[in-house]
């Protein structure tokens, strides 16, 4: 895969290349060139298959990482193309024209992360969360535990003790 990476690096603005496994590499590309790179990989480098598209929320850095994981059905290698997009203005160019299944991923990302892909078919339709009126739940700042506590009710009669605190309260309460 080394040649491929060299080729990509010469054509696109990339960084942070990591060869994770013999058949699996990750590389970051500038947002503007991302779809071009993915298209290039698909059409000219035999990465014809889309394994997945997903997002990672780097809340602390204020960015979403989109990972386009492509596979090459001839030599069975895989390449993960990372794209960092601004978290406050989470919009990404749609690539539904490249793969028939891409629109499903984009719909899910819009619903779960609030990342918009303008022009993607049925992007506005609910995918998993029909009737959801809270923030996109896969964002890091959505607190699942808090949501569960507010939405549901705890089973009454449950109470636990921390061993160290309990021992202190019983054995040396004055200290």
């Amino acid at each position: 895969m080394k040649d491929l990476i060299k080729d990509i690096e010469s054509r696109f603005k990339t960084s942070d290349y990591i060869q994770k496994l013999d058949h699996l590499a990750f590389i970051t590309v500038e947002k503007e060139q991302a779809i071009s790179l993915v298209t290039y990989l698909r059409d000219y480098r035999k990465y014809a298959g889309l394994t997945l598209l997903t997002a990672v929320d780097w809340l602390e850095d204020g960015v979403f990482q989109l990972t386009y994981l492509l596979n090459n059905p001839t030599d069975y290698t895989e390449i993960g193309v990372r794209v960092m997009i601004d978290r406050d203005n989470a919009t990404m160019e749609s690539s539904h024209h490249l793969w028939e299944n891409m629109m499903t991923y984009q719909r899910e990302l819009r619903e779960m992360f609030g990342i918009d892909f303008p022009g993607s078919p049925r992007i506005e339709e609910d995918f998993i969360l029909e009737g959801w009126d809270n923030m996109p739940p896969y964002r890091r700042d959505f607190d699942t535990k808090k949501y569960a506590e507010e939405t549901y009710f705890p089973r009454p009669g449950r109470e636990s003790n921390d061993p160290a605190t309990y021992m202190k309260s019983k054995m040396y309460p004055n200290d």
Partner: peptide
């Protein structure tokens, strides 16, 4: 799992025991 009192704590034993929901 909750830890509930079972007996008075002694050195090396918190006196708590796991209760399971």
């Amino acid at each position: 799992i909750d830890l509930v009192p079972f007996k008075d704590p002694i050195s090396g034993d918190s006196g708590l025991r796991p209760s399971i929901d």
